Computed example of a mutant assay.
Amino acid sequence: MDGEELRRRYAAGEINFSGLNLSGVNISGSEPMEDVFINIDLSGINLSGANLTDTILAGANLTDANLSNTNLTGANLGQCKLIRANLSGANLTKACLDVVKFMDSDMRGAEL
């Protein structure tokens, strides 16, 4: 699956994408409104190295997600669950981290 299909399926009402491997995929679209994934289940997803710049993931379940080396610059992660998430080397510059649940997450080398 690529970013375009993820957006299409989300727009069709699907919200459970747990366990997907989208390693290195750019799910950011050219239009900001394409980048809205609110209350989506991405638990266990592999987004290592993906470009999620300015993506809205508010309320997303990212438990056990691999977000290593992911570009999350300006992303809205408000109220996300980042339990046991791998954020090593991730770029979180200017990201919204309001009320985020960080538990046992790997943040080594992450840029905040």
Rank of each mutant, 00 (worst) to 15 (best):
L47M: 13
N26S: 12
V36M: 13
N26M: 07
G24Q: 09
M33D: 15
I45E: 12
D35W: 05
T53L: 12
G49V: 04
G24V: 08
L57G: 04
T55F: 04
N51R: 14
G19R: 09
N39P: 02
L57K: 02
S30D: 11
S18D: 12
L22S: 11
S23G: 15
N39W: 02
D41M: 06
N51K: 15
G29Y: 00
G49F: 10
P32Y: 00
I40F: 07
S48A: 08
N46T: 09
F37T: 00
S23V: 12
L47D: 01
E31W: 08
N21A: 06
S23Q: 14
S23I: 12
G29L: 00
N51A: 12
I27V: 14
S30M: 03
N51E: 12
T53C: 10
G29S: 00
I27A: 03
S23N: 13
D41N: 14
L52P: 00
V36L: 13
G24D: 06
G24W: 06
V25D: 08
I40L: 11
T53K: 10
E31N: 13
F37Y: 07
I45A: 15
S48L: 03
D35T: 11
S43D: 04
V36F: 09
L20C: 12
N46C: 06
D54I: 05
G49T: 05
N51D: 15
I45N: 14
G24I: 05
L52R: 02
F17G: 02
S48H: 07
I45F: 15
G24N: 06
S48C: 09
T53G: 02
L52W: 01
S28L: 02
S30C: 02
L57R: 04
G44S: 02
G44T: 01
S18L: 11
G49E: 14
S43Q: 05
E34S: 04
S23E: 13
S43A: 07
L57M: 08
S48Q: 09
L47N: 01
S48Y: 01
D41V: 06
L57V: 04
A50C: 14
D35M: 08
L22W: 11
V36R: 14
S30V: 05
N26C: 07
A50M: 07
E31Q: 13
F17W: 03
N21R: 13
I40P: 09
S28D: 01
N51C: 11
E31A: 12
V25K: 14
I38S: 10
L42I: 08
G24H: 09
I56H: 06
L52T: 02
G29I: 00
S48N: 09
D41G: 04
S43E: 03
N39V: 03
N51L: 12
S48G: 10
E34H: 06
F37N: 01
L57C: 06
A50L: 07
I40A: 13
P32C: 03
L52D: 02
V36A: 11
L52I: 03
L20K: 10
S48M: 04
N21Y: 07
F17D: 02
S43L: 03
T53S: 11
I40Q: 07
I40Y: 08
V25E: 15
S43W: 00
S43T: 02
S18K: 13
F37L: 02
